[in-house]
Design a binder for these strands. Structure first.
Lengths: 165, 165
DNA sequence: TATAACTAGTTAGCATGCTAAGTAAATAAC
DNA sequence: GTTATTTACTTAGCATGCTAACTAGTTATA
């Protein structure tokens, strides 16, 4: 049985041989996790979990007073996932939800004064993490990096479209 | 209350203003998710969930016959997370676990003939996804990209070391 | 207008990561 | 050699993502 594997491994493509190290996909996951961990290390002491602080942060950047649906889409999570987080943030007194006048199905999420205060504390920490993690990388390198990310994203979306068609 | 926020938003740093688009960290998460989704689209039809096929794939690259601990470390997940997945793979008949002679605490994971067969089917699909997602990107660009990823990883690790010290 | 189709929100429950706590074996310290 | 510490595994249960299914409100269609 082992010899079967051994034989196959010897016949593996040269590509696979190279992939014995961490593959690009694995490195991407690793880097994302590291970034998240570094940010959490700064922000969790403020009493917010990762989904909570990211939701607050996104809410700020959306300009406050958006529907749950808009916030969920921006966070790229589903509404049920957001529900739990918003319940917690409401319990903590950082956000409020009210019915939307124009569309009575919708509920509008807004920051409370406490939420705004918390965001002020968050901002400097988030910027600090960003500066620390991008230390020693030039703007040009960063642009190139983001372009490659975009290119891979496009390729992925094209592949997914094709396979779902 | 709203005016408080408005005033603050107007005073926000120029850096924050730029971050109204997706930040780099968010793009990283998004790209990682996209890659994972594209790979899963090919591999889930084989009857394996994401944690299961990644574990099989890693087991192959580690050369088979490694302890659960070594496999968990390579996958960068904790042992309890791996346990559930290995139970499932064992139920499906793709891996076996046996006691280690040298260290009686450890259990050695190995591929069954069915597991090897499944990996043969997986290999071509994984390589296909990789080629599709990296289409139109030169080797030089890819090297640069991976170097920036490494640099950010180093920075993150340095930051984490510092904050835990 | 009346009905059909969609959409926002909610609830319930699954999947997969984690930490905490316990056991048995190995290793280090004395 | 005995004891203390560490390690590999396991179990139990939490956190946070998801889909499925439901309700209520909106929009499109006949």
């Amino acid at each position: 049985m082992l010899s079967t594997l051994t034989k196959w491994v010897l016949l593996m493509s040269p590509e696979l041989e190279r992939l014995k190290e961490l593959s690009l996909a694995e490195n991407l996951g690793r880097l994302h996790r590291l970034w998240r961990t570094a940010a959490d290390a700064e922000l969790i002491p403020l009493g917010l979990t990762h989904p909570r602080w990211t939701a607050l942060w996104k809410l700020l950047r959306l300009g406050d007073n958006v529907s749950q649906k808009v916030l969920a889409d921006a966070l790229e999570i589903e509404l049920p996932s957001l529900m739990r987080t918003l319940n917690q943030l409401e319990d903590q007194g950082y956000v409020q939800r009210r019915c939307c006048e124009k569309d009575k199905r919708a509920r509008i999420v807004s920051l409370t004064p406490d939420g705004i205060e918390m965001l002020k504390q968050m901002e400097s920490k988030i910027m600090l993490v960003r500066r620390n993690l991008l230390a020693g990388i030039s703007q040009q390198q960063l642009n190139d990096f983001e372009n490659i990310m975009s290119k891979i994203s496009e390729n992925a979306l094209a592949t997914l479209d094709k396979s779902s068609a």
